[in-house]
Amino acid sequence: MDKVYPSAEAAVEDVFDGAVVAFGGFFSAGKPLELTRALAKKGVKNLTVVTQQVGTGNEEILELVEKGMIKKAICNYPFPRSATKGLEHPFEQAVRKGTIAVEVYPMGTFAEKMRCAGAGLYGFYTPTGAGTVVAEGKEVRVFSGVETILETALPLDFAFVHAWKGDHEGNLIYRHTANNYNNVMAMAGNITIAEVEMLSETGELDPNCIHTPGIFVKRVVEVGRPELWRVEV
């Protein structure tokens, strides 16, 4: 089996208008920069983007904002931390104008919604968010005296992930905290595209060290080591 694509552009070619696309990574760690740039270059409409945030330190996704490609963002920490910086931020401005809708989930719920989708489950009950605005409109159920709310699976049309090492069959290894959302998004993606810093021949990676087994990955692109990110929070 060989899942290697010649370029990021070729790997994102079939992303369609209205698709749900997830982007792994957390600030400087594990962001699929090349796939995101390729998507911005391609240009599609009405995307629903699923990502930790579209705020500071996520400039590649901002390009999608500025090109008007996003209809909705599903996040857990969408905006810059500072309210003053937020006012100048293109994503926050788009949300204030109403041109981009935003849906926010607690971080653990955000991840678990994708884990469910990847694991063939349709929902789960969590105590997180009970009694808060997050619970509005959701089924409430009490287990062992604890109030929980029903959260549902979040399946993805495309998942863009970044790995340190990968092989031709899509087995992936992440580096340090660059794993973060990448594994769970890879699991939830109908079409998961992995950009890898180092592409290995199949059989070269230690099978004991694989984080994401290749069955979750449809395409692999080698992109090299990304430039150092300096993020101001």
């Binding site: 857990n76 920490y77 309210a83 607690p106 971080m107 719920t109 997180t128 009970a130």
Partner: peptide, 22 residues
Amino acid sequence: NNPARGLGNVGNIGGSMDLAVG
């Protein structure tokens, strides 16, 4: 979520709700 920011019911939840509960 500080309502003074004027973003309504959306804001930076991050891990806070999970940590507060867990």
